[in-house]
């Protein structure tokens, strides 16, 4: 399922992963906010970092970027160890961490110039051009001269994303990038991420919105209460949950027999012409079930395969309800 993409030639010392952590742990007082996280984000992927609010995503990101020190564990970002090699690594990383931050009394453009000036590797000669290009890319050119305190939440969010794009980056770490955006803005951000990814940038997107991650990412990791509870490609995660088939047939007794023959455990619900079964046999596809039914002359009125929804899987992994992990 991995879409073919133009992968930029790896840098001289490029490892396999853009982000790699081992046993990453952060303890605040008695609380283990992040607990033994082993992340592995392959280069060139759009990687979704999922988890409910308070599950330790942002704390993990803060440690990745050297804003907070890990209590224990190791971090490799691009080709360096964090926070030791921050000076060499961070100029190649663009980040949006826990929402945008602005100087309200400066214009949008002046805000970006300020952040660009903070990086001593950037060239002052190209600053204005790069700032304008970043503003253009997020659709803020028209408001560039406006003071940022007059920006809407969505505009601030765009400014935050523009800040991550001030220089060519090898890695983008975007914490809840579509927060506060309208549906159109959300779509623009998705397209932006896609086009950046096509250029070979590795993109690490944290979100608590499943649907969003499902649309953008090829790989995901799921956090819950400070721990990494799952990591892999979307398909791997989906297939870890079980798909179901729902068959509508007048011959439900025959259907029951066929399904049992395939090793499934059919259930008959309410209406006696509907029969469902979990596809609990590894490798068994819905079309195989259909073929078996047809071979047995079972008259099928309808067959519906419901893939394991990522949502079910997510809820299974992180628990249900509104309780914020604390």
């Amino acid at each position: 399922m991995e879409p073919a993409r133009a992968v930029r030639a790896p840098r001289a010392s490029a490892g396999e992963f853009a982000i790699e952590t081992h046993g990453l742990t952060k303890v605040f007082g008695k609380q283990r906010a992040v607990d033994g996280v082993d992340l592995a984000v392959p280069r060139g992927t759009v990687f979704g970092f999922l988890g409910p609010n308070g599950s330790g995503k942002t704390t993990t990101i803060r440690m990745l970027l050297g804003l907070a020190a890990a209590t224990s564990g190791e971090i490799r970002l691009l080709d360096g160890a964090m926070p030791k090699d921050a000076r060499a690594v961070l100029p190649r990383v663009g980040a949006l961490v826990e929402g945008p931050a602005i100087y309200p009394f400066l214009s949008g453009r002046a805000n970006l110039q300020r952040f660009d000036a903070a990086d001593r590797h950037t060239s002052p000669a190209t600053r204005n051009a790069r700032v304008d290009a970043a503003l253009e890319r997020v659709g803020l050119s028209h408001a560039a001269k406006k003071r940022a305190h007059a920006y809407s939440l969505g505009m601030k969010q765009r400014l935050g994303i523009a800040n991550a794009l001030l220089a060519p980056r090898d890695l983008l770490i975007l914490d809840e990038p579509t927060n506060g955006l309208d549906p159109q803005g959300t779509r623009e951000v998705r397209n932006l991420i896609k086009s950046l990814s096509d250029d070979g940038t590795t993109i690490f997107v944290s979100s608590h919105l499943l649907a969003e991650v499902e649309q953008m990412c090829t790989r995901i990791a799921v956090m819950s209460a400070g721990q990494l509870v799952a990591q892999g490609t979307l398909d791997e995660l989906r297939s870890a949950g079980t798909a179901r088939v729902r068959i509508t047939t007048p011959d439900h007794a025959d259907a029951h027999r066929v399904l049992t023959g395939l090793g499934l455990v059919p259930e008959i619900h309410g209406r006696d012409d509907v029969i469902t079964a979990e596809l609990s046999v590894p490798g068994l596809q819905p079309e195989t079930v259909n073929a078996a039914l047809v071979r047995a002359d079972v008259r099928v009125r309808g067959l519906e395969a419901s893939g394991a929804s990522l949502e079910d899987r997510f809820v299974a992994l992180t628990g249900e309800g509104f309780d914020v992990a604390g």
């Binding site: 050297g66 000076r87 961070l90 980040a95 826990e98 929402g99 100087y103 952040f115 903070a118 001593r120």
Partner: peptide
């Protein structure tokens, strides 16, 4: 307080330099 500190440091400005 503005939150801009994290973006200056991620830029990276360098803590001593800042």
């Amino acid at each position: 307080n503005l939150g801009t500190l994290r973006y200056l440091l991620v830029a990276p400005a360098g803590r001593v330099r800042l």
